[in-house]
Amino acid sequence: MKETQSKTAESQGILVVTPHKAGKTNCWSCGDMRAAQFCQQCGKVQPPAPVDYFAFFGLPYKLNVETPKLEREFYELSRHLHPDINAIKSEREQQWALEQSSHLNDAYRTLKDPIARTEYLLRLQGVQLEEQSKTATEEARRTGKIKKQVVPPGLLEEVFELNMQMEEARMNKKMGEPDRTLERQLQDARKHMEAKHDALMQELGAAWNEWDALVDRAGRGENVLEEDRLAARDKMVDILNRRNYLRNLLRDIDEVLES
């Protein structure tokens, strides 16, 4: 493979983040230079800077996140940024506190959830997640078409069978003659899908490790090939799409069984 064909990962910056919190400035109040969201010296809340969720917490763009540590950091930042703490400050500071703490809450909510965190990172990496995309949902609603759902290849046969069963179960329910055998079959299918879902989460964990290894290499100043970045990225996109498909399937089965 020639060097010219595979670029170095589109500016290492996509992978590397400065180790300290992004957007450090001089405190507007006391001039201390260690101010990010709030000033280390005088504690005053600072004007919000447009940073992404990882940068807000001073985290590298890695997917393995220590959630207990994240939680501690969240509480600590809340103690400085929350509007209640700044309730009797100037109007300007109150407004900053409102913006800073909403950003903090949004960031924490996204990063503490494994799926939301992965989707967020992928979006930062320029991916439009088909299933998540609102334009796709709206397009589907407008045209009355079912949203494009790619059936994962390994599931094709099973899903076909399952859809038939669900249709039958719905009909039975409508006629008021529930079929116990069919319901048991659906229960079994559900368990099977659940197991597949769990396996997929394992797979996601492995993909995270792959991604994180690239980030670490970039952090050490090593060259990361663009094709490696794209491969790791697209693997996660694929896993998330399959997961969404499974989740919708599980939801449909639950609906049939519960109704």
């Binding site: 409102l98 909403s102 950003h103 924490y108 949902t137 609603r141």
Partner: peptide, 21 residues
């Protein structure tokens, strides 16, 4: 409200406030 009368959720229930979208 989206086209066709559906709802696109932008801030989910039980989100810590302040929250934004």
């Amino acid at each position: 409200e989206s086209l066709g009368g559906g709802v696109v959720k932008i801030i989910h229930r039980n989100s810590t406030i302040p929250a934004s979208a």
